[in-house]
């Protein structure tokens, strides 16, 4: 997987752009995401159904993974089963 890869959820409408990643499995709704969508949507895990938000960046605790949500959906994002969290930077004043 390389930065810039666009991954689609197997369970919902979620799509992410990979900004940074390691070798783990990037998942949405508990199911590994892929560059194409499966013909039939899989069932999301109840533990990973909090949704994804458009334009939010999702990171892991170690800072090895960063995903940009480019299409929102019902499944939530995780890596190897560990939920990712939104990266909340202090908003900067518009400078240009």
């Amino acid at each position: 997987m390389k930065p810039g890869t666009r991954l689609k959820s197997a369970v919902c409408d979620t799509e992410v752009m990979v900004i940074r990643c390691g070798d783990g499995a990037i998942q949405c709704g508990g199911v590994t995401m892929g560059e194409t969508k499966p013909e039939v949507a899989e069932n999301p895990s109840a533990d990973h159904a909090n949704g994804s938000l458009m334009g939010k960046r999702y990171v892991d605790a170690a800072g090895a993974y960063e995903l940009l949500c480019v299409k929102p959906g019902k499944g939530s994002l995780s890596v190897d089963g560990v939920a990712l969290v939104t990266k909340d930077a202090k908003p900067l004043p518009a400078s240009d």
Binding site: P3, G55, R57
Partner: peptide
Amino acid sequence: HSNLLSYILGTVEFAG
């Protein structure tokens, strides 16, 4: 592309 995107994604809140 990577320079410009990292500037925008790092400083601008989407739909802010």
